[in-house]
Simulated assay, not measured.
Amino acid sequence: MLPPTTPIRLVLVDDHTMFRAGVRTELDTSLPVVGEACDVESAVAVIKAERPDVVLLDVHLPGGDGRGGTDVILGCAGCTTEAGTPVRFLALSVSDAAEDVISVIRAGARGYVTKTISGNDLVTAIRRVAEGDAVFSPRLAGFVLDAFGAAAGEIAEVDEELDRLSAREREVMRLIARGYQYKEVAKELFISVKTVETHVSSVLRKLQLSSRHELTAWAMNRHLL
């Protein structure tokens, strides 16, 4: 995980000036905003010019072919950061419609959160996307899993790796892989945050995985979500 002071260069894309200003006030100094845009064309131009680490992107934007944020992502296919890694996109929208979520994820966004997210959680989401993790507001994760063929609640009958996990570890694993935060898992399962942390560490160790992103991919490949 990146140290909390590691700079992550951002571009903000939203057609509401006041909203972009509000987002700026929620960000700390380790997340410098290097550019802003209000429509598809200006967004593609500033992303190509500034080569940010993360683009915070609204899904409904004027311009382009009328597909909003999807047009921006497709217009920046192949764009890289100053370090040579792919530019990553995090959708931030008032919409929680399945078609909006699925559209930008299929185009290449690494995550999707709604504008009800708190400032602290937004900063965390940006940093996780910069590190390569997939990030979703919990209710939205199901849309993505369903769209990519993951059958909710389906458990593989024969899977040696899965058999290493206890029943409780499987419950925790599914929620973490869906994008839940530790405190949300604790509330859902009526256990403490410390217990969640212990289970997550055990799951990652048993499955020989190193991150939540790898855990999500592992679970989706087995249709466990």
Results as ranks from 00 to 15, higher is better:
M1K: 05
M1F: 02
L2T: 13
L10M: 10
V11H: 02
D15K: 04
R20H: 12
V23A: 06
V23C: 04
V23T: 10
D28L: 09
S30D: 10
L31W: 01
L31S: 10
P32T: 11
P32Q: 08
V34Q: 10
V34T: 15
G35S: 12
E36R: 06
A45M: 01
V46A: 07
I47G: 03
I47P: 04
A49C: 01
E50P: 00
P52W: 03
D53V: 02
V54C: 04
L56S: 08
L57D: 06
H60T: 15
H60P: 00
P62G: 11
P62H: 05
G63P: 08
D65E: 14
D65N: 14
G69W: 04
G69M: 02
G69A: 07
V72N: 06
L74G: 03
G78Q: 10
G78I: 12
T81A: 04
T81D: 04
E82W: 08
E82P: 02
A83N: 11
T85E: 15
P86H: 11
V87M: 08
V87N: 03
R88W: 01
R88D: 10
A91L: 01
A91Q: 01
A91D: 03
L92S: 02
S93P: 01
S93Q: 04
V94L: 08
S95P: 03
S95E: 12
S95V: 05
D96A: 11
A97H: 11
A97G: 00
V104W: 00
R106K: 13
A107I: 03
G108R: 03
Y112L: 03
I117L: 15
I117D: 05
S118Y: 05
G119K: 10
N120W: 04
D121M: 01
A125S: 15
I126E: 01
I126Y: 02
R128I: 02
R128A: 12
G132T: 12
D133Q: 13
A134N: 11
F136M: 12
P138Q: 10
R139L: 13
L140Y: 06
L140F: 11
L140G: 07
A141K: 02
A141Q: 02
G142L: 13
F143G: 01
A147T: 07
A147Y: 03
A147D: 12
A150L: 05
G153P: 07
A156Q: 15
E160M: 05
E160K: 07
A167M: 10
R168Q: 13
E169Q: 15
E171I: 06
E171M: 12
V172Y: 02
R174N: 09
L175H: 05
I176K: 08
A177T: 07
Y180K: 06
K183F: 14
V185P: 00
V185R: 00
A186C: 11
L189S: 13
F190L: 14
I191H: 09
S192V: 08
K194P: 06
K194G: 15
V196S: 07
E197I: 12
E197G: 08
H199I: 09
V200E: 14
S201M: 09
S201I: 07
R205P: 01
L209H: 11
S210L: 08
R212K: 14
H213K: 14
E214C: 04
L215E: 09
A217H: 08
A219T: 13
N221M: 09
R222S: 07
L225E: 00
